[in-house]
Design a binder for these strands. Structure first.
Length: 431
RNA sequence: GGUGAAAUGGGUGAGCGGUUUAAACCACCAGUUUGCUAAACUGACGUACGGGAAACUGUACCGAGGGUUCGAAUCCCUCUUUCACCGCCA
């Protein structure tokens, strides 16, 4: 959620940011006026409320003193005054609550303001290539006498995962990994967690279901509510990413500046309804309802968040290099970026058989958007409390990594496993 | 799931209708003293939203939400959570 202080103190920044988010100039002015008006209304009501409440307190104290000294008549005489003041409190506090609610209604749906470096855009086509892949890309594997092998063919051939079986057990988009496929998944998870630990992240195992407050804290509600599986009987949500429970660890807490940055990593399955997405690009493991991911999360001082964003990028680069996958990095344009983010870099790995880039990681700086919702704060050396910045990134999401590994390393003798994973497996080739 | 007890500031913990303006201790922070460390002493020490140039100050918050009362941390109701015991269970 955007801070109200932005509206008062940085209207130009707000205008520029919302413009990038496809707001018209008129919409922005209406919004700005509305927010300031509601904020003024709230403040005016609070002034009346506080004053009247102070009177109630003072008179009540007086009544107490009079009662004690036996002047019951005088005490009784004060009561109508108290009642009148209470009535004023009632009216003012109702106005206050109304204005506060209306203000939240205005602010809650607003997206974060994109960073200055984020270019304007309305679709994924306008994302910038931040770092291209400069070497040659793997061609579709041509194994003599065989058609080019997509990962879904390879998965079936080597019994690595079974989509049809998943349909029987659950439904479309719930793959069953088997044999070497299951082992490869486990190896990747361990590899990612070990790398994150080496980079200074504390490993956590969060719950896979979260309450509404947590979903709201990171911005899934109200923005992406339809994206989550909702367990209505207990009013809980299956997490779409470990970002949700891990980031909410810091909800309603005040950290010491000295302890920043906090780095946490966690492996979890992720559940996404992916409502309305069907078609050629979602075949195989390209898009599924349940997948595994290792997430990295940082809570940082606002002055360092963009430097740390680059550190997180470097971390993901290292993973891609160790997995020997061709990749490129995009900086998302304002239209493709999630509404909570101020800046997002996507990593795409090259799929040799599909001959296209697949998104395998998304690394974002949310600045104070999430921390403002969550009240995640730090105390500086002068004992002042400030919102901290939150960042997170996939490091990495497994299914598309698996797809690229299978497709790119497929040869006549089988699929070669990159060296980095050897110590996690009891095989080096899938054949 | 059943029964009982509890929930107070960063922590421990007193208060159970009106000088509580939430005691005290610990921790943290600043200062003094001191070869160093430690200790001792002094002071400051919650959050949110207002007012004020500032010093300062108002209101709200004692798990959450209602209620009683001139006045609620304190009494009543509902809910949540935690602990203990029982039941069930990987």
């Amino acid at each position: 959620m955007l801070q109200i202080s932005f509206f008062r103190e940085q209207p130009e920044r707000l205008r520029a940011g919302l413009k990038k988010r496809q707001f018209t100039a008129e919409q922005i002015e209406v919004l700005l006026n509305k927010v300031l008006e509601l904020d003024d209304k709230r403040k005016a009501a609070q002034l009346i409320n506080d004053e009247a409440a102070a009177e109630v307190n003072n008179l009540s104290r007086e009544v107490g003193v009079l009662m004690k000294s036996g002047k019951k008549g005088q005490a009784e005489a004060l009561k109508p005054q108290v009642a009148a003041a209470k009535e004023r409190v009632k009216v003012a506090s109702a106005v206050m609550a109304e204005a506060t609610a209306a203000l939240e209604e205005q602010l809650l749906p607003l997206p974060n303001l994109p960073h200055d470096l984020v270019v304007y855009g309305t679709s994924a086509d306008q994302n910038e290539v931040f770092r291209p892949w400069e070497k040659s890309l793997p061609k579709p594997p041509v194994v003599s006498g065989m058609a080019p092998s997509n990962h879904w063919d390879l998965g079936e051939k080597y019994n690595l995962f079974d989509l049809k079986l998943g349909v029987k057990l659950t439904g479309a988009g719930f793959p069953v990994y088997r044999g070497k496929g299951a082992k490869l998944q486990r190896a990747l998870i361990n590899f990612f967690l070990d790398q994150a630990q080496k980079a200074g992240y504390e490993e956590v195992q969060p719950p896979l279901l979260v309450n509404e407050a947590s979903a709201r804290g990171t911005g899934q509600i109200p923005d992406k509510e339809g994206q989550m599986y909702h367990v209505t009987k207990d009013d809980l949500y299956l997490i779409p990413t470990a970002e949700v429970p891990i980031t909410n660890i810091m909800r309603d807490t005040i950290t010491k500046e000295f302890d920043l940055p906090l780095r946490m990593t966690g492996y979890t399955p992720c559940f996404r309804r992916e409502a309305g997405s069907y078609g050629a690009h979602v075949r195989g493991l390209n898009r599924v309802h349940q997948f595994d991911k290792v997430e990295i999360v940082q809570f940082v001082h606002p002055d360092h968040s963009y430097k740390i964003l680059m550190d997180m990028l470097d971390h993901v680069c290292l993973l891609m290099k160790k997995l020997e996958l061709p990749y490129r990095i995009l900086r998302l344009c304002s239209g493709d970026m999630g509404s909570a983010a101020a800046m997002t870099y996507d990593f795409e790995a090259w799929s040799g058989a599909q001959q296209r880039w697949l998104e395998v990681s998304s690394v974002s700086n949310f600045e104070t958007f999430q921390s403002n919702r969550m009240k995640a704060r730090y105390r500086d050396s002068h004992n002042k409390v400030h919102l901290l910045h939150t960042l997170n990134g996939s490091a990495l999401a497994l299914p598309r990594i698996m797809a690229c590994l299978l497709e790119n390393n497929n040869t006549a003798e089988g699929i070669h496993i990159p060296k980095a994973l050897h110590k996690y497996l009891d095989f080096t080739v899938i054949n």
